[in-house]
């Protein structure tokens, strides 16, 4: 069954990062689908029209979450590389990254459907309810992206919608 929510084109994802971070960002469809689980290091953004209705998920690996969070507030790339190597985001970087995901809510907007909002941003590994794990495993649509942020580095993103 087709999803009631939009899933963005890679160019739209790149444009949002570009406008927000003020630097060149390239987003390309990944050659290989990512096997994302709640135990995957990174962060999840959970989107829906209500707190109790999550219709879309964005997962970013640690590298992309760190680089985008750092670039948002001009934290030097060298500073954030340590977090990428350690596989864990600093609190300030995570807060910034949450703002990136908050603004990304527009990716899911679909004419005729109620607007979705970022309901939660969760650092991972984490626990997710079984219905969200099911959404990760069997979405109506998915988009796997390789994203490179100029001056910082590359990471991976997965978007899924119900």
């Amino acid at each position: 069954m087709a999803s009631v929510h939009n899933i963005p084109a890679p160019d739209a994802v790149a444009r949002l990062f570009n406008d927000l971070l003020g630097r060149r960002v390239v987003a390309k469809k990944s050659a290989v689908k990512q096997a994302v689980t709640p135990r995957s290091p990174g962060a999840f953004g959970l989107y829906g029209p209500g707190d109790d209705q999550i219709d879309g998920i964005v997962f970013c690996d640690v590298a992309l979450a760190c680089y985008s969070g750092a670039a948002l507030s001009l934290i030097p790339a060298a500073t954030v590389q340590q977090s990428v190597r350690a596989g864990k985001m600093a609190d300030g970087t995570f807060e910034n990254f949450s703002e990136v995901l908050n603004i990304a809510r527009g990716w899911f907007d679909t004419p005729g459907q109620p607007p979705v909002k970022l309901r939660r941003c969760v650092p991972a590994p984490c626990d997710l309810p079984k219905e969200l794990i099911a959404l990760l495993l069997k979405p109506a649509e998915r988009l796997d992206l390789d994203i490179e942020i100029d001056g910082y580095g590359a990471g991976k993103m997965l978007l899924v919608v119900k």
Partner: peptide, 8 residues
């Protein structure tokens, strides 16, 4: 409420 956004 976002310090980073205020800065931007």
């Amino acid at each position: 409420d976002s310090k980073a956004m205020r800065m931007i």
